[in-house]
Nucleic acid binder design. Structure first.
Lengths: 150, 150
DNA sequence: GATAAATCAGACATTTTTTATCCTATTTAT
DNA sequence: ATAAATAGGATAAAAAATGTCTGATTTATC
């Protein structure tokens, strides 16, 4: 019932890119170092974010990632579902036909409500709201100052 | 991000016991058969439900399970957390000290809200409300009639 | 054009979690 | 005593998650 680490990494990455600003190119290594993400793993996650149209990946020397969606249109839900797929809280909701109890059973109604609530909460959380007046980096990430105070 | 099958089984088991009524003894094999749960696995799950004080396990010939809590006081939250532990949606909320971003970062506020909402929704869902006017058994479970129409 | 720095993409490895099952012991009605 | 039922620890099997390795590709720069 927990968020995967990959999704948590994705959020961290997008927080960093949001702080940098839409369209600003940041190297993969930089993000990995600043946000405590295994660099190769970040590569995999970035592919998913790119496929979802949230970032653009630039190859070659001076390559890296850049935010495509403006932070005030980017939501936690978009980032998380880009990585873990559409959120479902239980199986029978995902494959109602395999359960046989779905349309009639009130349990599924509860779960459906819970799911909708959760997704709505995550949809309301834009990255611009998440980075305002709130440090995104851990206290010991000194070098981040180069980004925040250019 | 999905509910474990064990928790789903637990819910099914409690739905059956709730239909039977508080204090009514039902054999493990019966529940397993009627609710499509592997019998040995159900045994394991029942131990957790018993430890949480939700059911009582009777050994010996004519043994089985019986509901301790009345269905109108029994909630989805109680059953699910008895099996999977207290619900947390992400790690940093569970071990804030390991993250270093917890108290300041707004992401965690969002997740905390989401968590509270989810738990509240599940807390409001009592088993008495879940079994009223709603068939709990799959259509092909003929033998269930012996329980429902004694 | 050659080189070096960067990412891509698929395969592979490792670890953790989940989902059971096996087997012996224990309990209890008859 | 016996037989039917569950307990509980050990173990197995499967699935998912978390990375890592390696060769290919892209691109700025010399």
């Amino acid at each position: 019932m927990r968020l995967s680490r990959a999704a948590e990494y994705a959020v961290r990455c997008m927080l960093y890119l949001s702080t940098a600003g839409k369209g600003v190119l940041v190297g993969r290594r930089t993000i990995a170092r600043e946000m405590d993400i295994p660099e190769q793993f970040l590569g995999k996650i970035a592919q998913q974010l790119a496929r979802a149209g949230l970032i653009e990946i630039i190859q070659g020397v001076k390559g890296g990632f850049r935010l495509v969606v403006p932070p005030d249109e980017l939501t936690l839900l978009m980032v998380i579902e880009a990585v873990i797929g559409e959120i479902f809280l239980n199986d029978c909701m995902l494959w109602p036909e395999s359960c046989g109890r779905s349309p009639v059973c009130k349990v599924h109604v509860v779960w459906e409500n819970a799911r909708n609530q959760l997704r709505e909460t995550l949809r309301k959380a834009t990255f611009s709201s998440l980075i305002t007046e709130s440090p995104v980096l851990s206290p010991d990430a000194h070098s981040s100052l180069s980004l925040l105070n250019p």
